[in-house]
């Protein structure tokens, strides 16, 4: 645990150092005519904070379990736990924060999470290539999973976008790097959903899609992603998009129940939890979809608001 504490300390120090250098325009919510829009901006940002936290929560539990299974044989295996924990902290903070303007510490944590995920992915790729057989199905199925660290990146990106949305001034169109915020978030979420769906697809293929429900995470999220992409490109979205993205959010939660059923079908069921929780389908994995879908919903409301002017 000392390792985690040290990591957090380093991250926090870095964040504080950075915050001194950046000019922040944090202000309480505006008054008068701008109240409505102001509230919307903050609400959209908080939703994205929540989405980021949801994904990070999934990552925290999932990586804790998987790396415990791997006996924490490498010190770096503590990193995703620390990062995800900090991201959850940042997201909880963001959720409670009703002010405008990006928060430097949160920004730093989110950026760190984004970077850690990339480094982790590189690490997992390295782990796979050094296994006998290299980039084979065997290793894609059973060695360090490629998609898992990417989920931290996704939580980081979602959080980062939350800060960008929050950084908009009331009375101006919500933009991220000069582009309409809703569309940027929708686009990012769509790509993230596709990546997560690919990961689920790989692991469900490993399980030979033995239960028809296992097809859901490789069909519903891609459809949602396609609808979100269209929204991102056209700047408008119909009800169908909201339904599908909402259903994807629900699917992520239902996935926990399905996975629990999967665990129970392993020998010894939950009584044999020290084996089946690890050998069976991972309970904490599906809520990543919920997190991403929440980001998508937030994007959709931004898009609709932008259209209303």
């Amino acid at each position: 645990m000392t390792r985690i504490a040290r990591l957090i300390a380093i991250a926090a120090t870095t964040a504080l150092t950075l915050s001194k250098k950046r000019q922040l325009q944090r202000s309480p919510a505006a008054t008068g005519a701008l109240v409505g829009q102001s509230r919307t901006i903050v609400t959209a940002a908080r939703r994205l904070n929540r989405a980021s936290g949801m994904i990070a929560g999934s990552v925290l539990i999932d990586s804790a379990m998987e790396h415990y299974r791997g006996n924490f044989s490498n010190r770096a295996m503590w990193t995703p736990l620390a990062t995800a924990a900090m991201t959850i902290g940042a997201s909880a903070h963001g959720l409670g924060d009703r002010q405008h303007g990006a928060h430097t510490v949160r920004d730093t944590i989110y950026s760190t999470a984004g970077a850690v995920g990339l480094v982790g992915t590189a690490f997992h790729i390295y782990n796979i290539t050094k296994q006998v057989g290299g980039l084979s199905w065997q290793n894609l199925f059973y060695a360090a999973p490629l998609g898992a660290p990417a989920a931290i990146t996704l939580s980081g990106i979602t959080g980062f976008l939350a800060e960008r949305v929050r950084h908009n001034r009331p009375g101006t169109p919500e933009l991220i790097f000069g582009y309409p915020a809703g569309q940027v978030v929708a686009g990012g979420t769509a790509l993230s959903l596709l990546a997560t769906s690919a990961e689920a697809g790989l692991l469900h293929f490993r399980g030979a899609f033995h239960n028809p429900a296992m097809l859901l995470p490789v069909t519903m999220p891609p459809i949602s992603a396609a609808l979100l992409l269209r929204a991102a490109l056209t700047g408008s979205a119909g009800r169908m998009t909201t339904y599908f993205v909402g259903a994807t959010a629900a699917m992520g939660l239902a996935g926990v129940v399905f996975h629990a059923y999967g665990v129970s079908r392993n020998k010894g069921g939950f009584k044999n939890w020290r084996q089946t929780l690890f050998a069976g389908p991972p309970l904490p994995a599906p809520p990543s979809f919920t997190g991403l879908a929440l980001a998508g919903l937030s994007a959709l409301s931004l898009i609709r608001r932008a259209r209303r002017g």
Binding site: R69, G70, S73, K267, G268, N272, Q275
Partner: peptide, 17 residues
């Protein structure tokens, strides 16, 4: 080893039991 078998099959890895 039944009903509980083994989880950590990797070379050199040890299950807690």
């Amino acid at each position: 080893a039944s009903p509980r078998g083994y989880v950590r099959l990797e070379l050199g890895h040890r299950d807690p039991w």
